[in-house]
Design a protein around this nucleic acid. Structure first.
Lengths: 139, 139
DNA sequence: ATTTATGCAAAATCTTTGCATCAAC
DNA sequence: GTTGATGCAAAGATTTTGCATAAAT
């Protein structure tokens, strides 16, 4: 099932409408080769109103179809989410994100929470560096 | 050595000046009982110019005297840094952060990077939940 | 004296909102 | 026909910048 189809069914389930502007935003997101900022999405969708793009991104994020990744400089980029709990490898060179899951890592995190008497409700792990492709390509 | 003294020596080392507005910002940060937003800092420092507060926070962050913590809603809060590499436990109830270090966790993260052929240059781990004090206090 | 920092106000960003109109159901 | 979504433009919020002045070294 493509992202657009998934989004369609997800939206319909909750009673949201399947409109032309939403389809356009979804197509643009699917077409984006790399994680994007809302700013970039806006530029690629001059035919859709600003507010609609913001509203749609927020909606898709809430539906867990888009994941929001905080970069080191404090800016936020979005990417199609493969869904579920995961972490990111973020390439400083090409900007691509790779999602991964790691149960051992999650277990270690739970252990830390326990050690501090902390009731863990969520966590985020972001790795920053250079991806394999860029390492190979770069000098 | 207090935070202010540390900041003083750190600034002087690099050739920055020890000015009254910077002292005021440092005092306000030290006095803050909890992690703060720039907004809150601005409010507590009406006698210092907006631009100066922003510039000082940026400077302190670059000097690693303040750490920046991204919250789940995308907002950013700052806290005095104990320095060095660490992670955070962030209480959703009281908003306090606790810093911790965990070499095993870091090792697991390095292992993930290696498995993906990723050259790791930095990472962030944030845990969200309810701290021990709030769990005890709250019903 | 020289150089850096400050304060102000304006500009530049970034995001949300109100509301009349339009489209989906 | 009802209800939710859109687009616009305006308002808000947030952060940065230019520049004359003031302060630190």
């Amino acid at each position: 099932m493509s992202f657009t189809e998934l989004a369609n069914s997800r939206l319909e389930t909750i009673g949201f409408r399947w409109t032309a502007p939403r389809r356009a935003v979804l197509r643009a997101i699917e077409a984006a080769g790399a994680p994007f900022t809302v700013e970039e999405l806006l530029e690629s969708l001059p035919e859709v109103g600003r507010a609609t793009v913001f509203r749609t991104v927020k909606l898709l994020h809430e539906l867990d179809l888009l994941c929001r990744v905080p970069l080191e400089d404090g800016s936020i980029r979005y990417q199609l989410s493969e869904g579920g709990h995961h972490h990111h490898l973020i390439c400083r060179r090409c900007g691509q994100f790779t999602e991964f899951t790691d149960l051992e890592l999650d277990a270690g995190i739970q252990e830390q929470a326990r050690a501090h008497g902390f009731t863990l409700e969520g966590h985020a792990v972001e790795l920053y560096g250079i991806c394999a492709a860029c390492s190979a390509a770069g000098a």
